[in-house]
């Protein structure tokens, strides 16, 4: 994973993941904010948030509506949130977004949620690799077919 090895700005026909990440959970995420790159064949657009609780349900829905095959949110561990309840609030927002997707028949497992260890720089790399593998198993969003 490297911003020096960018993927095309638009994902084309391949799998596309929009990855939201709390700036406090990974300095690497801050460094790569707004970067588009490829991991295991999946194009990833990384968007850094000041706190994971800045994520809105609409961000998740609009990403999926406009061409993402998956959306991920990486937060700080709940007890380590700089703003107190940010990670918990973000988790609940992801739950609501998943419920809406379940209602409309779009697999809610296309929305990923995980915590990062801010002290481990490799954590983000690992998380994105793991998510890319899961995305590959899921395949393209049915909205694209």
């Amino acid at each position: 994973m490297s911003a020096n090895n960018p993927a095309p700005d638009k994902p084309g026909n391949g799998l596309y993941l929009v990855a939201f990440c709390c700036a406090n959970s990974s300095s690497k995420a801050t460094e790569l904010s707004k970067a588009v790159f490829e991991v295991e064949g999946v194009t990833i657009r990384l968007v850094t948030l000041a706190c994971s609780s800045k994520l809105e349900i609409l961000h998740v829905l609009r990403a999926l509506e406009t061409g993402a095959d998956g959306v991920g949110l990486w937060t700080c561990p709940a007890k380590a949130c700089k703003f107190g309840r940010g990670s918990i609030r973000a988790g609940k927002r992801i739950e609501r977004a998943r419920r809406i997707l379940d209602q409309i028949g779009l697999e809610s497992k296309r929305v990923f949620l995980a915590e990062l260890n801010p002290d481990d720089e490799k954590d983000l790399d690992e998380a994105l690799k793991q998510t890319a593998a899961e995305m590959t198993k899921l395949g393209k969003s049915p909205l694209k077919t």
């Binding site: 829905l61 028949g105 779009l106």
Partner: peptide, 17 residues
């Protein structure tokens, strides 16, 4: 306004599916 945007986005996807 926020819920209107969410509902519209979800409906666009639901109808497309």
């Amino acid at each position: 306004e926020k819920e209107t945007a969410i509902t519209a986005s979800a409906l666009r996807m639901a109808l497309k599916l």
